[in-house]
């Protein structure tokens, strides 16, 4: 996505209360995933903002928590998730991102040479994505105020959303979008996880900033 359309996290622009910091957002995502009965692979908070220039409503990266899955371990051991060229590309990107974070003078890290799994890659790529005016599954949920809970690769593949289609290609089998104040909470899993009222309540409890 073009850089200009991906807003930086800003409590002021999104109407999120000042006390709702990046740190507390991360804690809530962590609690949601680690406290869940089911094995969710990741959670992402898509944050809403308005592009003043274009008057467009945008959902952009707010924060995310990646837990991983059993597939990560299996694929890393067998290194079979993608072609050699694709793996080289992913590792190169990861090394560059690591240099960006740690500094170009940092010593080489052996973890950067390990297989970058499909779900890790899907999560990383998510950081560059945004949804304008109700586009995509997160955008639709935000616009309509209705959660969406999609289970099964076949259903993800026919969802009217490129992100959902991409998710199933990368091994995800469940994807959930729940509209919350100031954005959308997305959950993804490589397992088949069916609708749970408990999980919906947990999302609402953790991401209702008024409470």
């Amino acid at each position: 996505a073009p850089e200009a359309h991906v807003p930086a996290f800003s409590s002021a622009s999104a109407g999120v209360p000042e006390y709702f910091t990046q740190e507390s957002l991360q804690q809530r995502l962590h609690m949601l995933i680690e406290g869940a009965r089911d094995s969710w692979t990741y959670a992402i908070f898509w944050q809403s903002s308005v592009d003043v220039g274009f008057g467009a409503s945008i959902l952009g990266w707010g924060d995310g928590y990646y837990k991983g899955c059993e597939e990560d371990k299996r694929r890393r051991r067998n290194a079979t998730s993608s072609s050699v060229a694709e793996q080289e590309h992913r590792k190169r990107v990861l090394r560059e991102l690591n240099s960006l974070i740690s500094g170009s003078g940092s010593s080489p890290d052996s973890a950067m040479e390990e297989e970058v799994t499909d779900t890790e890659w899907f999560f990383l790529v998510s950081m560059t994505q945004s949804f304008v005016n109700g586009s995509g599954l997160p955008g639709q949920s935000f616009l309509t105020g209705a959660p969406s809970w999609i289970v099964g690769k076949d259903r993800l593949s026919i969802a009217p959303c490129d992100r959902a289609k991409q998710a199933q290609v990368f091994g995800l089998q469940s994807m959930v979008c729940v509209p919350v104040e100031s954005g959308v909470l997305e959950l993804g899993s490589t397992e088949l996880i069916f609708h749970s009222a408990d999980m919906m309540n947990q999302v609402k409890a953790l991401f209702n900033f008024n409470s």
Binding site: P7, A8, Q22, L97, L100, E120
Partner: peptide, 26 residues
């Protein structure tokens, strides 16, 4: 570097750190 919004930079740093732990535990 400056063009990368702070939120994503923080998320990325956390992801890379956690990934090192996951890889070493595999």
């Amino acid at each position: 570097d400056a063009a990368v919004p702070q939120a994503r930079k923080a998320s990325l740093a956390r992801f890379l750190e956690k990934r090192k732990e996951r890889v070493s535990n595999t």
